[in-house]
Design a protein around this nucleic acid. Structure first.
Length: 365
DNA sequence: GATGATGATTTGCT
DNA sequence: AGCAAATCATCATC
């Protein structure tokens, strides 16, 4: 069979645009069965058009018949040419997709939470990371942590099995489609690029499904996190002693209630704050002072009694230390008139300063 | 369970 | 970076 090479040679000769077909048509015994040839081509085209309407076996047989048809190479060439012309216009629509920021965010989060990425002892890495994020919580809630770990591992497992399932399905489908296209490429021209494009489309579809999985996994992790590890949920009021120490500092520094970093550390130590929610111990102290300042300022009247009490206490302490307790005032009943004045002065100074505030000065130690 | 207290977080400013 | 202010979310009390 030397038909194919001959057809290729004829390119550009004969019937414009359809050289192969033209050659073929001129091949036959001239004139008499030209009509018959036309009929033949019409039949073939009809068969191709209706091939999808037939049953599988029927179509298979028809396909085989078409493949063996002597006109097939010629038709194929024609299709190739038409394709080449149309593909040129399609090629422009090739988009280079940038990495989806949403997907990247999800990936990063899953990685950070230890759901994606390498498994390290059943998600303990994630728990450790979470613990670090919340400031290295002590042993008081280790039971909750193990609960959290277990649940996270569960999520992790579901995520991975689902992801694997999707990946497998994607691969199966891709190979299936590729086989189909290869099979079809025997009857119609399909460039490797087209197959590539189709694979790309399939992958995009599947990755959008994967994204949904990632999204819901992220949501599940967030819920779990907020349920077990959110600092706000873990909020514990300070004990009485800690509050007293902090209040003592606050009211004795009412003119400038901005403890330095060192003072904060000192206070944290004194208050034996173990549940450091925010990050470092001093952050908790900072939070307290921040809240105290704003709430004091908002409603001085409400805090007046408290202010008087602490002012009196420090005053008593001071006198008892400096003057060897010679002024025998009862500690529980302070001289109200004597203590109120400096206190009010302090508070007005604080309020004044809050407008024209300066950086808190560092303690000399 | 309604409400105020309170520790933590967020937002915006300097 | 550190703060004020607003806000959130839980705790504690009744």
């Amino acid at each position: 069979m030397d038909e194919q090479p001959r057809l290729m040679h004829s390119h550009g000769v004969g019937m414009a645009g359809h050289p192969g077909l033209a050659q073929h048509m001129q091949d036959g015994t001239a004139g008499t069965d030209g009509e018959g040839r036309k009929q033949d081509i019409g039949d073939i085209l009809q068969q191709i058009m209706t091939i999808t309407d037939q049953s599988l076996d029927e179509a298979q047989a028809r396909k085989h018949a078409l493949n063996c048809h002597r006109m097939k190479p010629a038709l194929f060439n024609v299709l190739c040419e038409i394709k080449e012309k149309t593909v040129l216009s399609i090629r422009g629509a090739q988009e280079e997709e940038p990495p989806d920021p949403q997907l990247m965010r999800l990936d990063n989060m899953l990685l950070a939470e230890g759901v994606a990425g390498p498994e390290k002892g059943g998600g303990s890495a994630a728990a450790a990371a979470a613990a670090a994020a919340t400031g290295g919580v002590g042993a008081d809630n280790s039971a909750e942590h193990s609960d959290y770990r277990a649940k996270l591992t569960q999520i992790r497992q579901i995520y991975h099995t689902e992801l694997e399932k999707y990946e497998q399905a994607c691969n199966e489908f891709t190979t299936h489609v590729m086989n189909l296209l290869r099979e079809q490429s025997r009857t119609r021209p399909i460039s490797p690029k087209e197959i590539e494009r189709m694979v790309g489309i399939i992958h995009r579809k599947f990755s959008s499904i994967q994204m949904q999985l990632k999204q819901s996994t992220c949501e599940a992790v967030m819920i779990l996190r907020s349920r077990f590890l959110d600092a706000r949920r873990k909020r514990r009021n300070f004990n009485k002693q800690a509050t007293e120490i902090l209040n003592e500092y606050f009211y004795s520094h009412l003119s400038n209630p901005y403890p330095s970093e060192e003072a904060k550390e000192e206070l944290a130590k004194k208050c034996s704050i173990t549940v450091s929610q925010g990050g470092t111990l001093t952050v908790t102290v900072s939070n307290w002072f921040g809240n105290k300042r704003i709430r004091y300022k908002k409603n001085i009247g409400k805090f007046q009694e408290e202010a008087n009490m602490y002012a009196a206490r420090t005053a008593v302490n001071a006198t008892s230390v400096s003057a060897h307790g010679s002024q025998a005032n009862s500690p529980s009943t302070p001289n109200s008139a004597g203590e109120l004045i400096p206190d009010q002065l302090y508070s007005s100074l604080f309020l004044y300063q809050s407008r024209y505030r300066q950086k808190p000065r560092r303690s000399p130690t």
